[in-house]
Amino acid sequence: MIPAYTPDLTADLARRNALRLPEERLKGVADTLTHVRRFIATLQTIDPEQSVLTKETSSDETA
């Protein structure tokens, strides 16, 4: 399962995507991102041939 996004991880991700996220917004975005990513990831389980995406959250962002 995709690990939960933390506020710190979300802040780092936002910086790398040039997205301004004030501190008070970090938890809300982190929670939503976790929920949405886990929901999308269920698509993997529906296709048994698909083997992508149980990556750790820290390893799938690019600078």
Binding site: L19, L21, R25, T32, R37, L43, Q50, L53
Partner: peptide, 15 residues
């Protein structure tokens, strides 16, 4: 929009 801005391309391609 903030959430969508941070989704990885792999999620989009899976969808």
């Amino acid at each position: 929009l903030e959430t969508g801005s941070l989704l990885p391309a792999s999620d989009y391609l899976l969808a």
